[in-house]
Each structure stands twice: as C-alpha cells, then as structure tokens.
Simulated assay, not measured.
Amino acid sequence: MDRDGRPGPGRGRQFLLLAAAAAVGVPVWLFVGVLLHRLDGDPGGWFRTGDPLVAVGCLLALLWRRRFPLTVAMTVVIASTASALATGAALAALCSISTRRRPVEIGAVAVAYVTASQLAADLYPVPGSPAPVWYSLALAALTAGIAAAVGMAVGARRMELRSLRERAESAEREQAARAAQARFRERNRIAREMHDVLAHRISLVALQAGTLDHVTDLATAESRALVRGIAEGSHLALEELREVLGVLRSDAGRPEPPQLSADRIPDLVADARASGLDVTLTTDVTGTPADAVGRTCYRVVQEGLTNAAKHAPGAPVHVTLEGGADTGLAVTVRNAPAAARPARRPPVSGFGLPGLTERVGLAGGTLRHHPTPDDGYVLVARLPWPHPTREASV
C-alpha cells in the first residue's frame, strides 16, 4: 500500500523493477572489471565482494521506496558511489522519485546522482588519460535526465489513469443517484396513478353500499339497481387497475388505453350521478384545451368528486368549468355540507390532494382547497392555456 491508501505495485512489478536495475548495473560492473583487469590484472577484493553487497543492499532498499520515497532515493544514490553494480539501482531510484513529479525532489536526487558518479571515478580510476570533467558531467547529467524523464512520463500516466478511475467512480455514483431518484419519482407516479384510478371508483362503490346498508325501505328494483351498480363499479375498478398496470409494465406492442381529457368529464359526472351522488355540471369553456391541461382538469374533477363521496355523502356537488385561451381554465368543485356524518370515518391515503397539487403545478397552474363558511368544501384549480407546441407532459 502507498501513503494514499491505494494498492502499491504487485510482486510482478517489483520483480521487474529490480530486474531492470540489475540489468543496467551488471554491464557497468563488468565493464569496470575489464578495465581494472587490464590495469592491474586483479580487480581486488572490494570489487568482487564489497561492490556486489552494496548493490544488493541498494536493490533491497528499493522495496521501501513507496513508503519513504525521498529517503530511499537519496540513500541509494549516495551508496552507489561505492558500487558500480549499484548504478542501475541509483537510476531506478531517480526514476521512481520522478514519478511524483516534484521538481525540488527530482533536482536534489539528480544532483546527488551526478555528484556520486564523479566521486565513483576515484574508487575505480580508468586507465590512460582521464576524460575531461565536462564530458563525465555531461554523461552523468544526460543519464540522470533520461531516468527523470522516464519517471515523469510514468507519473503522468498514473495521474491520468487515476483521474480516469475517479471520473468513472464519480460517474457511477451519479448514475446510482439518478437511478435512485428515478425510482423515487416512479414510485410516486405509480402511487398517484393508483390513487386517481381506484379512489374515485371505490368511493362510488362505497357510497352505493352505504345506501344499501342504511336505507331499509328500498324497493326491490332499487335494491337490485344498487347491487348492480356495485358490481359494475367493482368491475370497472378492476378494468382500470389492469389498464394502469399494463401501462406501467410498458409491454411491447400493447395498445395504450385512451388518454383522459376534458371531453370525458361529462361521462365522469354521469357515472358519479348513476352511483347516487347528487352532482351537477356547468361548462362555459370556449375552445379545446391542450392535452396536458385536459388531463389535469379531468383529475381535478375526479378528485373533487371522490372527496365529496367520501367525506360528504349525500351532499349536493356542483362542478364548474369556465375559461378559454385568453383567460386560462378555471375548475371548481364545490360541495354543500353533509346532511349527516358518515357512519365510519373514511380511510385517508394521503396521496389525494398533495398528489393533485403536484400534478397541477407540473401543468403550470395553481390549486386551492378550503372549507366554505356554510361548512361545505371547495376545490379550485386554475390552469394555463399553453400553445400546443409548448405543452408539457403531466
């Protein structure tokens, strides 16, 4: 592990580094040995034992270069003064410190390497006339420059790979966040659709069942009509539920059910009236609203009738639609106070009015609902009349 907590090079990379350092040092050591043999005939005991031992120590020190990069690099470079075989280890240390791409550290190790190369000439003097000082300095500087350039290239490559890895991880996190947000929105949409489809129909069924249970003096024909209405309402609820589930599954080739629109509001009112709800409809709309506005208008009326059937059974309900392209669309659902409180408190889902407020807001409108002074309730939605090309899906 390196100091940043990331996995360091594996054993294979460590072996390759040590092998490369040895491959560079061995030819230098042999070359010096040949020159010494020509000079004295015997290279000496230090050359045969001490020089290899120092080189082995330098190679082993390279194993800790990740944990103590500058210390190991300076130690190996300085130790290479007493070992020709350690030349490869010194160049490997300079290359390793260069991967950090810190100019001060690279300059310090490079100067130490050039200085060590000059001092090594006193340990193993070359026979014949010595080379000019500038030549040996230039050769050592060129060698150090090549090692530093290779190390900086490796460091740049590592930074690029690290940046790509971080970007990939960031993209994965963003994708996971978007997927979680999409699942959250989809759950809310499913809950809203299920409420809109089932709450209205089941409320009408409950209204008919309550009438059948509390009114004991109904004629046989009236009782049969109520029972038939309950059966038909339950069947329609199942059909509508099946249609919603079919759309949510998005089966390939499956035809979508007809879209809701303002034109179907009279049918909605007629169904509520047939279920026993005392509802009247007044329409004063000039023109045909956009599809999104029409669907929202339908849902507003549906929610208003559902709440009236649940909380004020038997109370008269009045639905008013008015407006046009110049003034927008106004939808009002007003119910009078209930003659009597429901025998049982109706269940509250919590999705009705909050979901309707969100739906109206997506259409660019506003929704208000509050009790009236006569203990009734009113639901008012004001919707814009957008141009068809700018219509947003709701």
Results as ranks from 00 to 15, higher is better:
V28S: 01
V348C: 04
A73Y: 03
V197L: 04
A392E: 12
R264K: 14
T143W: 10
L63D: 06
S203M: 01
D122L: 15
A131Q: 14
A73W: 01
I78Y: 05
V109S: 13
A22P: 08
L16Y: 03
G5A: 01
D122S: 14
I190T: 10
R187H: 10
T99E: 15
S117C: 15
A237D: 05
Q14W: 15
A315C: 10
R66K: 09
V54F: 07
V111R: 03
A84R: 07
G44E: 07
T327I: 01
A221D: 15
T320W: 12
S163R: 15
A141P: 10
A168W: 11
E186I: 03
R165V: 04
F184W: 09
R192G: 00
T357F: 08
G128W: 11
T216W: 03
R167Y: 02
F47R: 02
S170F: 09
E358V: 05
T372G: 09
Y124N: 10
R173K: 06
Q302M: 09
V300M: 07
R11Q: 12
G229Q: 02
E243I: 00
L238D: 08
R228Q: 11
V56G: 12
L94Y: 08
R368N: 13
P27S: 03
A336N: 11
R100T: 05
L161D: 06
T389Y: 05
L241I: 04
E169F: 10
G350L: 12
G361R: 03
H200C: 03
R224D: 15
L353R: 12
G10N: 13
F31E: 12
T49D: 10
A73F: 00
G12M: 08
V24C: 10
L60D: 07
V331N: 04
L59G: 14
S203W: 00
V126S: 05
F351P: 03
V348E: 08
L53R: 13
V54G: 05
E169A: 15
V76A: 09
F15L: 15
S98H: 06
P125V: 04
H370Y: 08
P257S: 11
V104G: 13
E303F: 09
D263Q: 09
G314M: 05
P386I: 11
L39H: 02
R173M: 05
L70M: 12
E256Q: 13
R334G: 06
A131I: 03
T306R: 14
L35Q: 13
L139E: 08
M194Y: 02
V331C: 13
